[in-house]
Computed example of a mutant assay.
Amino acid sequence: MRALLVVNPAATTTSARTRDVLIHALASEMKLEAVTTEYRGHARDLGRLAAQSDDIDLVVALGGDGTVNEVVNGLLHAGPAPDHLPGLAVVPGGSTNVFARALGLPNDPVEATGALLDALRDGRERTVGLGLTSGTPGTEDEAVPSRWFLFNAGLGFDAGVVGRVEQHREQGKRSTHALYVRQAMRQFFGDPHRRHGTIVLEREGAEPVTGLVLSIVCNTAPWTYLGNRPVYASPKASFDTGLDVLGLSRLSTPAVARYVTQLLLSSPERGPQGRHAVSLHDLTRFTLHSKAPLPLQMDGDHLGLRTSVTFTGVRRALRVIV
């Protein structure tokens, strides 16, 4: 087997020595080419080259969710073809690693490498569904390029929090849960739309859902992790179904306190509920519109402002070694 290892040297939970150990362990089992990313988007370019190659069987992403997202967007640049494209393997190296943990992989990179080698020896893999976003025809965002996401996306409040965190990371601050909490509070008090939402969800065959302040799109559960605690925004979400949506139409102080508590106490059986909460399961295609431009995030990556985004759940999009 020939494999390409895409290494993010800025991965927050791996040192240079650890990465060298992992590379030697993988190279002992396969013909391995390791490439270190040098710029934003480099992992996507490497994934694309692997997809166009005739002799690469596997792409291993060593890094956080952002690195994995880039690799996947490169692999699927021409669309999904699970039986003909290289498979994907993940060695978690970020601060949260939602995708790897949702697949059942250990959060420790050394243990995850051992699990990956066991899976390769045993021939274990699964084909997972992914989310795809695109510009909505007839809107000013029509020309926005399509982009794949692995586990979640968001338009509105949560994307604003992600954007604030990215600004601080660019200034050299580490991505910690405390940083997210601080920026969530600042986003809450600075959001002019938190009492009167501008987001409308439209899907074929159903009445529009209007007045949303927050819209979280999930492709799997949990939505994220707080340390070792999983958080379930849409408990029924799965890599084997379409997309799930949690929408909130009010973010007053009492409402936020209630929904944050529900998220902290969420489980695979129960997520946030209430008169201002909308939960939709297994959607194939829908569009989120907003009268005012709102921030968009995918897999924890802030993508700027949008007024309209179309989401598609694509089943059986990618082979993953697990």
Score class of each variant (00 low, 15 high):
L5E: 04
V6L: 14
V6Q: 10
N8S: 05
P9I: 07
P9V: 13
A10M: 07
A11S: 15
A11I: 08
T12P: 04
T13E: 09
T14I: 07
S15G: 12
S15H: 08
D20H: 06
D20T: 09
V21S: 04
L22D: 05
I23Y: 01
I23P: 01
H24C: 02
H24S: 12
H24G: 01
H24P: 00
A25F: 03
A25H: 03
S28C: 07
S28N: 12
E29S: 13
E29L: 02
E29C: 06
M30T: 10
M30C: 11
M30E: 07
K31G: 10
K31Y: 03
L32E: 04
E33L: 05
E33H: 00
A34S: 11
A34V: 05
A34E: 06
T36N: 00
T37N: 05
T37Q: 02
T37Y: 01
E38T: 14
E38D: 11
E38K: 11
Y39F: 12
Y39K: 15
Y39T: 10
R40A: 13
H42Q: 08
D45C: 14
G47L: 13
R48S: 13
R48G: 14
L49R: 15
A50E: 15
A51R: 11
A51L: 12
A51P: 15
S53V: 11
L58P: 09
L58C: 14
L58K: 08
L58Q: 08
V59Q: 06
V60I: 15
V60L: 13
A61P: 00
L62V: 06
L62C: 05
G64Y: 01
G64E: 02
G64R: 02
G64D: 01
D65W: 03
G66Y: 08
T67V: 04
V68Y: 00
V68H: 00
N69C: 09
N69H: 13
N69L: 05
E70Q: 11
V71M: 07
V72Q: 05
N73V: 09
G74M: 09
G74W: 10
G74Q: 07
L75P: 02
L75Y: 10
L76P: 07
L76H: 02
H77A: 15
A78R: 14
G79V: 06
G79M: 07
A81G: 05
P82M: 11
P82S: 03
P82D: 08
P82T: 07
D83T: 09
D83E: 13
H84E: 10
H84P: 00
P86E: 10
P86M: 10
G87E: 04
G87Y: 02
